[in-house]
Design a binder for these strands. Structure first.
Lengths: 350, 350
DNA sequence: TGTAAAAATGTAAACGTTTTCAATATAGTC
DNA sequence: GACTATATTGAAAACGTTTACATTTTTACA
C-alpha cells in the first residue's frame, strides 16, 4: 500500500532547469524571480500538477505559517457547535488553513489527549470552547506561544481573544417573554453549573425576575450536565413537583430537546399546560410541534469571527486581546402561549 | 508568536547519553535495546515530557505509518453523519490515528479541494461518503495507493471496502409498516436521485408496494436534494395535490424534519391526517410531537467498522475488498397511526 | 585467553520544504 | 571596455524523525 509518491519540488526544478530554491520562490513569491524564469517554472508546475507538501512545509517552518488549526469542541452532537464548525471551516479553508477537529465529548481525559495530539501535529493555533477542568491547559497553550481563540465562553482570569454571545441578555429576553405571557413560575433547566455560559444565563433569568418584581424560587432552578439526558431527567423532576412550574426555560439545545421528550411523554400540552423557551435556535425549530420559541445565537458567525481573530493574531502576535460579544435574537414562535396580562407586544431584539 | 519548541529526540538522546537512533528504538520498540538502557531512556522521556513530533514522523515514513486519516463528509448538519464521525473518532483515536474532517457541504468544488488538501497533508487513508461527481476522484485515490473505505454507499463499478446498511430492507419495512396501518397512498420524498442510497430506498418502497399488490403512483415519489429545504418544499407539493397522500415516507433525517415543518405549518394532525415514517432515527426523535417512527441505522457502528476495515487494509493491502451491510431497525413510535385492517401486529425487525 | 557470533548501539542519509548566504549574471556609469 | 551596483539564481543547512548499514560491545565457547 505504498502511496504513489507525489511530485516534489526537485522534480519541478529538474524539469524546469532551475534549482529548487527558485521553484520555491516562484511559489511563495516573496522574492522576485525573472519573469521569463517564473513563467517557465509555472508551466512545469502546471504540467506536473505539483502541489506543495504541507507536511514538509510545517516541519520546516516553526512559526505561524503551518496553516493548520486545532479545534476543540465539547460535543459535536450539539447542533450549535456544528454551526460553529461550519463557520470556521468555511473561512478557514478560504484562507488555505486546514482544521483538525477534536471532539472530546465533554471528557476531560480525552480533551487532554487531543491537546497533546494537536500539539504534536504542529498546529499553530487553537480554537477552543473551554470546559471545566480545561482552564489550566488552555492557559498553558497561550503561554507556550500558540495563538488561542476561545469561543462560546472565555477563561476566568485569563486574557485571551474571546468570541461569545450576550448570554445574560439572551436569557433575560427569554424569561421576560415568558413573564409577559403571564408566567410567574418559570422553571430553569441549566447546563453544567461550572460553565460561565450557564452562570450568565442564570443571572439573566434572575435579572428578569427582579425586573418584574417576582420572587425567585431556587428550587425550580436545576442543573446537572449540558446534555440530552439531563434535560429529560430534570424536566421530569420539575414537572413532577407538587407545585410544578407553568413554563420552562432551558439553557441549551440538548436540554430543550430532552425537556420536550419529557413534556410529550407526560402528555402535557404546549403551551397550554407548560410553555417553553430554549436557548439556542435550531435549523429545524419549526419542525417541532408546536414550533419552538428560542434564543438564537449564530454559531456560524462565531466561527467566522474566531477565524478572523486568529488570522489577526498570527499576523500580529502583539495585538491586544479582544472580547467580542454578539447579540442574541429571540425568535418568537408558538411554544410560549399568550396568557397576556395588560398591553403586551411580542418582544423583538434588534 | 514563536511557538515554544518542544522537546526533540536529540535532547532526550543527549540527556540519556545515547544516540537518537536508540531513543527512537525505545519508543517504537521494533528492535531490542538493552533493558538497562531502555529504562534510562524511558526515564528521561518522562522527565522531559517528550512526545514524538507527528509531522516529522509523517514526513519520514511514506507508508501507512502516518497515522492520519482523511474523512470526507457530505453534510455535517445531518446528525447521521455526526454519528459516523463520532464512531470514527472514538476508535481512531484509540488506535492513535488522528482524523482530519473535510465537510464539503455537498459542493463538488469544495470536495475536490479537500481531497487535494488532505493528500498534501499526507494522510494515508480516506474514509469517504461518495457523492455524485465524486466517483472519479475516489477511484483515483484508490489507484494511487491510498487505503479507502466508503461509508453509507459504495462506488458503482469500483471495487472498494464499503460499510453501509440494508437500505432496501429498511425502506421496505417502513413502507410495509405504513401499508399494514392501512395506508395505500404513500408519498415518498427521496434524496438526490443519483445517490445509490436513494435508489435502493426507492426500490424498497416499490417492493413493499408490489408485495401487497398495490399500484405505484410515480407522481407521489418526488426528490430533489437531500437537504432540509427539499423536505419542506416537496412535502408542500405532495400535500397540496388534489389527491394528497395519507402518509409520507421520507428518505433521510433532514427531509423528515423539513416535511414536519410543512405538516405543522399546514396544521395537519399526525397521524390522523397524515402519517409519517422517516429513514434515520435521531437521538431526539422522542422529542418530536408525536414521537417519530423511524428506520434506525447506526452511524456510530458504521464509523467503528470503517476504522476497523481501514486498519486491516493498512496492515494487509492485499486483503480482498469487502462490503459490509448492516441491518436497520424499524423503531415504532406514534407517527403512523393504526388504521388497522384485519389482524395486524406491530412490525419489529430483528 | 582468544575468537567468532550475537547483541547493542551509533552514524548518516533521507523525507520535501524554506531560507540564508554566496555566487553569478545583468545593467548602468564613466 | 572596465568597474560597480543590482538583480537573479544556486548551494547547503535545517526542521525531527526512521532506518539501512557500520561499528562497537557483550556473550559463548573452545
Amino acid at each position: 500500500m505504498a502511496v504513489q509518491k507525489s511530485v516534489s519540488l526537485k522534480e519541478v526544478a529538474d524539469k524546469a532547469g532551475v534549482s529548487i530554491a527558485t521553484v520555491s520562490r516562484v511559489i511563495n513569491s516573496k522574492t522576485v524571480v525573472k519573469g521569463e524564469t517564473e513563467l517557465r517554472v509555472q508551466k512545469v508546475i502546471r504540467q506536473l500538477g505539483y502541489r506543495p507538501n504541507r507536511v514538509a512545509q510545517r516541519l520546516r517552518t516553526t512559526s505561524g505559517a503551518g496553516k493548520l488549526i486545532g479545534l476543540l469542541i465539547p460535543d459535536i452532537r450539539n447542533p450549535f457547535y456544528v454551526d460553529i464548525i461550519r463557520g470556521i471551516e468555511q473561512y478557514a479553508y478560504a484562507r488555505n488553513f486546514a482544521v483538525i477537529i477534536g471532539n472530546f465529548s465533554q471528557d476531560e481525559e480525552r480533551q487532554k489527549f487531543y491537546i497533546e495530539t494537536l500539539k504534536s501535529e504542529s498546529v499553530d493555533a487553537f480554537i477552543v470552547a473551554p470546559f471545566p477542568g480545561m482552564n489550566e491547559y488552555v492557559k498553558e497553550l497561550s503561554e507556550e506561544g500558540y495563538a488561542v481563540v476561545c469561543i462560546d465562553r472565555g477563561l476566568p482570569g485569563v486574557d485571551l481573544d474571546v468570541v461569545k454571545v450576550d448570554n445574560f441578555q439572551g436569557a433575560f429576553d427569554a424569561v421576560e417573554h415568558l413573564i409577559k405571557a403571564g408566567h410567574t413560575r418559570i422553571g430553569h433547566i441549566t447546563g453544567n453549573r461550572q460553565i460561565p455560559t450557564t452562570i450568565e444565563r442564570v443571572a439573566g433569568y434572575e435579572a428578569a425576575y427582579a425586573r418584574y418584581g417576582l420572587t425567585i424560587d431556587r428550587d425550580i432552578i436545576v442543573g446537572r450536565d449540558s446534555d440530552y439526558q439531563s434535560g429529560v431527567d430534570l424536566a421530569m423532576h420539575l414537572l413532577g413537583l407538587p407545585d410544578p412550574p407553568t413554563a420552562l426555560f432551558t439553557s441549551n439545545n440538548l436540554l430543550t430537546l430532552g425537556a420536550l421528550e419529557t413534556i410529550h411523554s407526560r402528555g402535557l400540552k404546549i403551551p397550554e399546560q407548560v410553555a417553553i423557551v430554549g436557548f439556542d435556535d435550531m435549523d429545524w425549530s419549526m419542525s417541532l410541534n408546536p414550533p419552538l420559541t428560542a434564543v438564537r445565537q449564530s454559531g456560524f458567525e462565531i466561527g467566522r469571527i474566531a477565524i478572523e481573530l486568529l488570522h489577526q493574531r498570527i499576523a500580529d502576535p502583539a495585538r491586544p486581546f479582544v472580547s467580542i460579544v454578539l447579540k442574541t435574537e429571540l425568535i418568537v414562535r408558538s411554544s410560549c402561549g399568550y396568557k397576556l396580562r395588560g398591553g403586551y407586544e411580542v418582544h423583538k431584539e434588534n
